[in-house]
Amino acid sequence: MLRTEGLAKTFTLHLRGGMQLPVLSGIDLAVSTGECVVLSGPSGAGKSTLMRSLYGNYRAEAGHIWIRHHGEMIDIAAAEPRIVLAVRRETLGYVSQFLRVVPRVSTLDIVADELITRGVAQDEARDRAGALLLRLNIPRRLHSIPPATFSGGEQQRVNLARGFIAAHPILLLDEPTASLDADNRAVVIAMVNEAKARGTAIVAICHDAEVRDAIADRLFPLSPTQEAA
């Protein structure tokens, strides 16, 4: 479903006199249908950078990122922006650590919009969004409020709902349970395992050992690139 070949990423900081910051090199990662791979390694090993590169948020400097999109392998590292957008819309979901809020849009609509842009009827989309939010213990009275004023944990759960609702064939999860309590962690673990059962390929970053053990089929170790000055 997802395969990288010789993926490398170096940041060039022009504001620091062109300083080179190599983070990833020679990454060969492959994830199959129904498999959950958890990236492991110490802070600074480049887990988040790899995750963002997979999503096309960071520009790969070398190598390929092959994504199966409607049965066809597409190289995210080289695809045109509108192709990347189509892949993100239909194939590649991403749950970031932090919710980027859109002013004035209600929590329910933030989640339902993910379905509506994929052609689901408005009523059905809102019903499904409401159900998923309830499952993640976001009470109904909060559904009509924009999430800007929510706590960190609530925002993360809204983000999870938004990431999971469209059932993308490939999901990238960046610390999905970082600010959650035990009850909600259990809900997330169940959701991840249901997704895997559906055949979703998952790449995750997860520091919580309990959650990691519950979802990971294997670990993909990363170590800090040594050339970093």
Partner: peptide, 11 residues
Amino acid sequence: GLTDQVLDDPQ
């Protein structure tokens, strides 16, 4: 490039 790419990983 893509909006988030240019803003999060400016070259």
